[in-house]
Nucleic acid binder design. Structure first.
Length: 482
RNA sequence: UCCUCUUUAGCUCAGUUGGUUAGAGCACCUGACUGUUAAUCAGGGGGUCCUAGGUUCAAGUCCUAGAAGGGGAGCCA
């Protein structure tokens, strides 16, 4: 079967005009005339449809009546130059086989715009829309580009565990893993659950980060990265959070904070360029979609740049690098702070930056992606390298317009004494983390790393507004359908 | 979890101060016309007005509680 088939992207781009071809796909629309019917067919290989011309003298009425939006068909015919103006080539059908019908009374997708909320409830069918076809192709391209970027740089991909026995990673609420029957858990004498009898003989959870294990690998392989599923049981109901998402976490030995920033900026630009170079049709469609959507909004709420212009802008400009301390100065002197327009007024050094502050810095003040470094140690994780000032750590957060924090990373604390002291101060159970501490006892070196939320990158590249629309089957509080 | 908005036909939405038989566009069915481009034109079918209570002579409309969804916030990637 496969050997005879030609993908639509090949039909549209090649010089197969005049050849007999077979093409399979799903019907987007059918337009009927007296003597001829036109079928727009799509097989996922490109956002463009191929037009099938069905002469009613050749294709019988009992076949045509089954060809409705959503039906799967196989078409044999000749690829010819089109007489119409909207497409360059089309297929003159000689035979059409209806592979799978789609009852038009029941098929929920129409050849018109649907709301993204509606399509979310039809996630099993939304791949069949232009928007989700485009997103699916771009998502694949970005996954591939991540691996290509790191492979070309000599990084090793490692699989860190999805089930973890450590609850010290400090990145939010975790999903518990157990084989116990929740109605009948083995208990200790004091009434607590006896995890010694559980599958792993201890309490286990789904991972919230592969970083700690990534560090172990980096301190032997030099440069590694993970790209795996990550789970957070936070009750987060926003357009930027998922309970199950995919994270890219490189860890590099002999990288200081500046090397870390250089790599992160280079990677983000590489991914953007890869999308521009390889997903032009899909990006153009999404850009047009976004412009149409924003037409109903007032002028001041519309994007300043169209999607492709925005991607090029990021590509062509250096990210602004500045410190937390500088950012606080800028924010303290900012108009919204002085006029008390912020919900959280910046009073003094040490305050955690709220998303309104991050947005001000990125969207109003610098108007570029911003890398903030050297945060107060008290608002950052225990494993970050402490600066000599005793107050700050070598953290770096990369802030993107419209998205906020897209990358969080740091130079790691490689000094055993400093790390142990900080763990004790922050009540990190050092006994459980013996293996992490041992890497600082044996051959410890300066090293760094960061985490990129893959779906947040997808939000930026596609211009989509809700993270539930850039992953095929989103997992969010109260939603694990499909 | 908090704030806020929404829920009416398969989809997108209108529905006035509470008042007769709840509307439109698209989709679907029938017909006309046509190498069409989200085809066009005419006609037709299609409703648990989110759910449960309540107020009232009368509730899509007002009140209470709940559910689902959107937007914002927190947590973060």
């Amino acid at each position: 079967m496969q050997k005879e088939l030609t993908k639509i992207i090949v039909l549209l781009s090649s010089s197969k005009v005049g050849e007999k071809i077979t093409v399979n796909g799903w019907v987007r629309t059918k337009r009927e005339s007296k003597n001829v019917a036109f079928i727009a067919l799509n097989d996922g290989s490109t956002i463009k449809n191929i037009q099938i011309v069905a002469d009613k003298e050749i294709i019988s009425e009992d076949i045509l009546v089954k060809i409705n939006t959503g039906a799967a068909i196989s078409v044999k015919g000749e690829l010819v130059e089109s007489k119409g103006t909207e497409q360059s080539v089309e297929v003159i059908a000689e035979t059409i086989i209806v592979l799978g019908e789609a009852n038009p009374d029941e098929y929920p997708l129409q050849p018109k715009r649907h709301s993204l909320e509606f399509l979310r409830e039809k996630a099993h069918l939304r791949f069949r829309t232009n928007t989700f076809g485009a997103i699916t192709r771009i998502r694949h391209a970005m996954i591939f580009a991540v691996h290509k970027f790191f492979n070309d740089k000599g990084f090793y991909n490692i699989h860190t565990p999805i089930i973890t026995g450590s609850d010290a990673e400090g990145a939010g609420e975790m999903f518990h893993i157990s084989v116990f029957n929740p109605e009948n858990m083995p208990l200790n004498e004091d009434g607590s659950v006896n995890y010694a009898e559980d599958f792993f003989g201890k309490e286990t959870n789904l991972t919230v980060s592969g970083q700690l294990e990534g560090e172990l690998a980096a301190l032997a392989m030099s440069n590694v990265y993970t790209f795996g599923p990550t789970f957070r049981a936070e009750n987060s109901n926003t357009s930027r959070h998922l309970a199950e998402f995919w994270m890219i976490e490189p860890e590099m030995a002999f990288y200081d904070i500046n090397d870390n920033m250089d790599l992160a900026e280079e990677m983000l630009k590489y991914l953007v360029k890869y999308a521009l170079d390889n997903c032009a049709d899909d990006l153009q469609f999404l850009e047009k979609r976004l412009i149409d959507e924003e037409k109903s909004k007032p002028q001041n709420q519309r994007s300043e740049m169209a999607l492709i212009e925005k991607l090029n802008f990021v590509l062509e400009n250096d990210f602004v690098r500045t410190t937390y301390t500088e950012a606080i100065k800028i924010l303290k002197n900012s108009k919204p702070n002085k006029k008390k327009k912020f919900n959280f007024i910046i009073e003094e050094w040490g305050a955690d930056l709220q998303s309104e502050h991050e947005r001000y810095l990125v969207e109003k003040h610098f108007k570029k992606p911003v890398i903030l470094t050297d945060y107060p140690k008290d608002i950052k994780a225990f494993y970050m390298k402490q600066n000599d000032d005793g107050k700050t750590v070598r953290a770096m957060d990369i802030l993107f317009p419209g998205i906020g924090e897209i990358i969080g990373g740091s130079q790691r604390e490689e000094r055993y004494d400093y790390l142990l002291k900080r763990m004790r101060e922050m009540n990190i159970p050092e006994k459980e983390m013996w293996w992490y501490l041992e890497t600082r006892k044996f051959g410890t070196v300066v090293h760094s790393g960061y985490g990129l939320g893959f779906e947040r990158m997808m939000l930026f590249v596609t211009g989509m507004g809700n993270i539930r629309d850039v992953i095929p089957f989103p997992r969010t509080p109260k939603n694990a359908e499909f």
